[in-house]
């Protein structure tokens, strides 16, 4: 299961990372070197393992539908890159890009 240059470009795209073209071959090599060490996991017999998720023995606690909102001790304007009329601003997208991406 070797990682290819296209794989790296694809996952960089998913992760919204713009990679320097010249760095890609090195990253391909590094990821492959790391993943090679992971192959040992394929040999492990995990048939007896059921329901693997997390380590806590904790059941999910529920919160009552009330209470004071958690305070923000600093105004949004103080930490946001761009705010206008109370909105966070980002470079504009065309409307048709919206719905397509909205996961829902």
């Amino acid at each position: 299961m070797a990682v290819t240059q296209e794989d790296v470009e694809h996952i960089a795209n998913l992760a919204r990372l713009a990679l320097d073209e010249r760095r890609i071959p090195e990253l391909v090599q590094q990821l492959n070197a790391i993943l090679e060490h992971m192959d040992v996991l394929q040999q492990v017999d995990t048939r007896k393992v059921i329901g693997a998720s997390g380590v806590g023995d904790q059941a999910l606690p529920l919160r009552e539908d009330k209470g004071v909102p958690l305070p923000l001790h600093r105004a949004r304007e103080l930490f946001a890159p761009e705010v206008r009329d109370g909105f966070f601003l980002v470079p504009r997208l065309a409307t048709h890009e919206t719905v397509a991406e909205e996961g829902g």
Partner: peptide, 17 residues
């Protein structure tokens, strides 16, 4: 998710969470 408002400002999308 929050709301993206595209027609409020000329060059920006406004985000209301």
């Amino acid at each position: 998710a929050g709301k993206s408002i595209h027609d409020r400002y000329a060059a920006n999308t406004a985000i209301d969470l």
